[in-house]
Amino acid sequence: MSSLSIELPGLSLKNPVMPASGCFGFGKEYSQLFDLNVLGSMMVKATTPEPRFGNSTPRVAETPGGMLNAIGLQNPGLEKVVMEELPWLEKFDVPIIANVAGSTEEDYIRVAERISKVPNVHALELNISCPNVKTGGIAFGTDPEMAKELTKKVKAVSEVPVYVKLSPNVTDIVKIAKAVEAGGADGLTMINTLVGMRIDLHSAKPILSNRTGGLSGAAIKPVALRMIYEVSQQVRLPIIGMGGIQSAEDVIEFFYAGASAVAVGTQNFVDPFVCPTIIEELPELLTKLGISHISECTGRSWGKHEQLAYHRA
């Protein structure tokens, strides 16, 4: 058996590495560079009921070790995603995690109900953490009660397991995690981007037309690790960890913190081959560390008294 295969609700993965939503489109561009079949899974771009253009440009700004983005959930809309984008991905042996977004509860329910019926969609990622849209998005992810209710309603209509993507832009992320667990979530993905901004030296105005944007990249890795470390010991849900992953070593660090799989985001822009490279390097790194299977890494950083039976199983 491969040292990388992973079983998660709805997902039998050949390895635990996947591109993060919003950083990989619907796979077409990267398929020109490498065989997508190597990926454990793929988190495709957020889908809303209607097509969205998103924010005006500039939509990206750079900062040491990271970048800010304010794309604004641009996507072709539910119909096109279900009829064109997802069927195109069927030729790959890769279970898809569909990212579900919207402005209202009804939006999320509508997308979840339809997209969860698509054969290659094996799980949903409920996006209640996008910081770059005026309504919906992060509003659902910063209020525990709203997060719980939305999770419940989406679970009621979804035909596949539901993972909830958590926002780091909260005082107590554990509280939100517990709320969505109570709402029936099957797993968590974390973290989304941190709200930040850059200001132009000459114009004295924000660089991003949206003024603020989501910070991603290596700069946010310590924040992601800390939050996964805290949440993983307080809930019984598996976590797909993300936030600044660049290497196989980073992947192991996320597992140690408490993740059961990982997603790579911004680094795809820097090195489009980062996912296949990490997947190739992981087995050797595990051997070097004396670990026979990657799942043994989950939660290794926890103190003994903090371990939950679920994770030891």
Binding site: Q32, G54, R59
Partner: peptide
């Protein structure tokens, strides 16, 4: 336009 990925995946440079 300011770009991210340069290959059409990130939607940073849309008009």
């Amino acid at each position: 336009e300011r770009m991210g990925c340069g290959i059409g995946a990130c939607f940073a440079c849309v008009c």
